[in-house]
C-alpha cells in the first residue's frame, strides 16, 4: 500500500497541476478573467523592473561579450559595410557647398517628419522577448508616461510595431516581423493599398491584395495606408520592395518588402500617442 501511495502521488500532483493550467488557459482565452490576469501580469512586470534594471547594469557587459562572440561574423560584415558607408558620406559631405543647408537636412533626417504633430513618448528598449515564439521588445515607459495598448511605435526611419501591453512602468511592443502582426499599407508610387504581414525575424514581410496590373518597382517605399479603422496613422514608412511577381492566373501580386528599420539593433524608439478615434 505504501508503495502504491508513493508511486500514485506524483501522478495525482501532476493531474492537479495540469487541471490548474488548463483552467488558467481557459480563463485567459475566454477573457473571463482578463482584467485580473492583465493586472497580475502588469504587477509582475512592474515588480521585476527594478531587479531587471540592476541586473542589466551588472550583466550587460557579459551579454555584450557573448553577443559579440556569437555574432562575430555578422559584426565584421556590418563593420565593413559601415566603413564603406562612412567613406561615401564623407565624400558627399565634402562636396556639399552649403553647410547650413546640410545641417538642416541632417536635423530633418533625425526628426520624425512622418509623425507630424502627433504627441510622442521616447523610450529605451530594455529587453527582447523572453519567448522564442514571439518577436517583442520591452520598453522602459508605461502608462505613467502616457503609453497605452494599441499605440504605434516608430524609430528614426519608420514603423517598428505596436504596443500590445502596458503596465505602469513598462510596455511590450510587438515587432512588425512577428507572425501575428499585420498593417494596412500603400505603395508610394501607384497608391495601391494592401496588407503587410510579418513572417518571422529573418523573413521579409509579405504584402497581399496588390492588383496584378499595378507596376511595382524594386526599392519602392511602402507606407502605412491609414485608411478608416486603421490602427496606424497614414504615411509611416514600413518597408522597401524587395521583389514583386504575379504567378500565372493569380488574382494578386506576390510582393515582398524589407522593413526600413533594423529591428535587430533597436535601442531607442518612439511611441506615438495616437488612436484611430483621434
Amino acid at each position: 500500500m505504501a508503495v502504491y501511495r508513493r508511486t500514485a502521488r506524483p501522478r495525482f500532483i501532476l493531474l492537479l497541476l495540469v487541471l490548474t493550467a488548463i483552467t488558467l488557459l481557459t480563463l485567459d482565452q475566454r477573457g473571463t478573467g482578463s482584467g485580473v490576469i492583465n493586472s497580475v501580469r502588469g504587477g509582475a512586470r512592474d515588480a521585476f523592473a527594478p531587479v531587471g534594471r540592476a541586473a542589466d547594469h551588472v550583466l550587460n557587459p557579459v551579454g555584450n561579450f557573448f553577443e559579440g562572440m556569437v555574432h562575430y561574423g555578422d559584426l565584421k560584415a556590418e563593420n565593413a559595410r559601415l566603413r564603406d558607408q562612412n567613406a561615401e558620406l564623407r565624400g558627399q559631405a565634402l562636396q556639399a557647398r552649403d553647410s547650413e543647408r546640410e545641417r538642416k537636412a541632417l536635423l530633418d533626417q533625425q526628426d520624425l517628419t512622418f509623425a507630424g504633430d502627433i504627441p510622442r513618448v521616447r523610450a529605451r528598449v530594455v529587453s527582447t522577448a523572453a519567448s522564442n515564439f514571439e518577436l517583442t521588445v520591452e520598453i522602459d515607459r508605461g502608462t505613467n508616461a502616457g503609453v497605452a495598448k494599441g499605440m504605434p511605435v516608430v524609430a528614426g526611419a519608420g514603423l517598428v510595431g505596436r504596443v500590445v501591453e502596458a503596465s505602469r512602468s513598462r510596455a511590450t511592443v510587438v515587432l512588425l516581423t512577428d507572425t501575428s502582426f499585420s498593417v494596412g499599407v500603400r505603395l508610394s508610387a501607384s497608391g495601391d493599398v494592401g496588407v503587410a504581414t510579418g513572417r518571422g525575424a529573418r523573413s521579409p514581410l509579405r504584402v497581399d491584395l496588390i492588383d496584378p496590373a499595378t507596376k511595382v518597382d524594386k526599392d519602392e517605399v511602402v507606407v502605412t495606408s491609414g485608411l478608416q479603422q486603421s490602427v496606424f496613422p497614414p504615411g509611416i514608412p514600413v518597408g522597401k520592395v524587395l521583389s514583386a511577381r504575379t504567378p500565372p492566373g493569380a488574382l494578386q501580386q506576390e510582393v515582398v518588402i524589407a522593413p526600413v528599420v533594423d529591428l535587430r539593433r533597436l535601442e531607442f524608439i518612439t511611441v506615438l500617442q495616437w488612436s484611430p478615434k483621434a
Binding site: L14, L17, V18, T20, A21, I22, T23, L24, L25, L27, D28, Q29, I37, V40, R41, A44, R45, F48, A129, A130, S131, F133, E134, T136, V164, E165, T172, V174
Partner: peptide, 18 residues
C-alpha cells in the same frame, strides 16, 4: 514565464510541468 510573454497564461506552466 507566462507572466512575461504574450502567450495565453498557463501554457508554459502546462508544458514545463509535463
Amino acid at each position: 514565464a507566462d507572466l512575461f510573454v504574450q502567450a495565453p497564461l498557463g501554457l508554459s506552466a502546462l508544458v514545463f510541468s509535463l
